[in-house]
Amino acid sequence: MLEAILILAGLAIIFGLLLGFAEIRFKVEGDPVVDRIDAILPQTQCGQCTYPGCRPYAEAIVKGEADINQCPPGGEVVIQHLADLLDVEPKPLNADNGEEKEQKTVVIIDEQICIGCTLCIQACPVDAILGAAKQMHTVISDECTGCDLCIPPCPVDCIYIVPLEPELTAWKWPLPAGEQA
């Protein structure tokens, strides 16, 4: 009887010590999976996923608080990539978070109406609007992600959404006949 207890207890203690030591030796810093998810997200920083930016959304996915189908700018492509990365089933985009746009868009400021209030500059998550107080504001279209966060703050409604026409070199072959999108 005694030997049984001793042996089992002894084994348990040895393993406990071993595992404790291993825990320290194999400590993991940071969270690389969040980086991998963030690398897939489109970086529009629009907040449609209900998180304040793409990185917080990535962190929420890892924590299990968010699902993979909450990103409208990423659309199906991003959902598929996330599903592949995390080895889960892909699912359709959650309609509560918004719709995927038919075509990529950017915004443009009408200089005639702009009053130089800088509210849009403060709203832009990627600093794509150039300007200062009482100075002309303009959008750097190459850097604009199409998040549309600058539209609500503008007091004079001088910002318009325009579709982004793909260049000839960026033209894509269409799907072969009989294939659904």
């Binding site: 595992l19 291993a22 194999f26 400590k27 993991v28 969270d31 690389p32 999976v33 990365l85």
Partner: peptide
């Protein structure tokens, strides 16, 4: 623990 360290993904 080893897997977590060597390949978090």
């Amino acid at each position: 623990m080893i897997v977590h360290k060597t390949s978090p993904l």
